[in-house]
């Protein structure tokens, strides 16, 4: 049903730390690997061994250079993973003519029901974040499921019930949890680190949050070391060595 739930019990989502993301693409391929055999299987690849290679991916990592505005930090290179933000006001859902797109009222996950989707692409037009991926081969829209087939999966050991990308990220830059609960570890992390919404002015109210790179001058580690003084030249060259040392 494309009518949005008035509220959801939980708002599950990801928190991505741009301060530690090294752009390694692990979250990208681990997502692909899990999901190509997962809930929305397969994630088709076209021309996989030739020019024009293309395919369905739920998560993609960009690289940007940020020229910091006057006085707020250094210029940087920033790696930026992008996947569905499981918005609270997702027009991708409301535009859907078939009810294939929906937002779950229990956990807030935005999903596509493949059996209903007619592949009209409208939801991908409605998503400002580019989080929807059309599988041309199957003719339906696919997207990040927040690993719905992992996070509750009783066939997985409990410790593995997290999204594939969160488990894989070698830099520990990805976090997951209930962002509706202000006391949840992710919410606290977001509060501590000043996590932000992407394109807040679009009004989609994304659940996923991004932790901005630490501003080095102010919050980054600064070593306040006094300048080095020349050692006392009184004792002549290497006079400072005179202390008794023993082996």
């Amino acid at each position: 049903m494309t009518q949005l739930p008035t509220s959801t019990e939980k708002s599950l989502g990801l928190v991505i730390d741009l301060d530690t993301c090294v752009g390694c693409q692990a979250c990208v391929t681990s997502c692909k690997e899990w999901n190509t055999g997962g809930h929305m299987a397969p994630l088709t690849d076209y021309n996989p061994y030739e020019g024009g290679a293309d395919g369905v991916w739920f998560n993609r990592v960009h690289t940007y250079e940020q020229e910091a505005a006057n006085g707020c930090g250094h210029d940087r290179t920033v790696h930026f993973p992008r996947s569905c933000l499981h918005c609270d006001e997702p027009a991708c859902v409301t535009v859907c003519p078939t009810g294939a797109s929906y937002k779950r009222s229990s956990d807030g996950i935005v999903l596509v029901d493949e059996d209903k989707c007619i592949g009209c692409k409208l939801c991908s037009w409605a998503c400002p974040y580019g989080a929807r991926e059309m599988d041309m081969d199957v003719g339906v829209m696919k997207k990040c499921t927040l690993c719905i087939d992992r996070i509750y999966n009783e066939n997985l050991p409990e410790r593995d019930r997290v999204p594939a990308c969160v488990a894989a990220c070698p830099a520990g830059a990805r976090h997951y949890g209930d962002l509706a609960d202000p006391d949840s570890p992710v919410s606290r992390l977001v509060a501590e680190r000043g996590g932000v919404d992407l394109m807040p002015e679009m009004g989609y109210r994304p659940v996923n949050k991004y932790l901005p790179p630490r501003d080095r001058e102010r919050t980054g580690p600064a070593v306040t070391a006094p300048a080095l003084e020349s050692a006392d030249p009184q004792g002549g060259f290497l006079g400072w060595l005179d202390g008794v040392l023993s082996r």
Binding site: H39, S106, I151, N153, N155, R161
Partner: peptide
């Protein structure tokens, strides 16, 4: 980290969308 662990209760919530959460 606490923010990278499974939900404290990782049972599937009741949601009548027919998704198989434990394939």
């Amino acid at each position: 980290a606490p923010s990278q662990r499974p939900l404290r209760v990782s049972n599937a919530p009741a949601e009548a969308d027919g998704v198989d959460t434990s394939p």
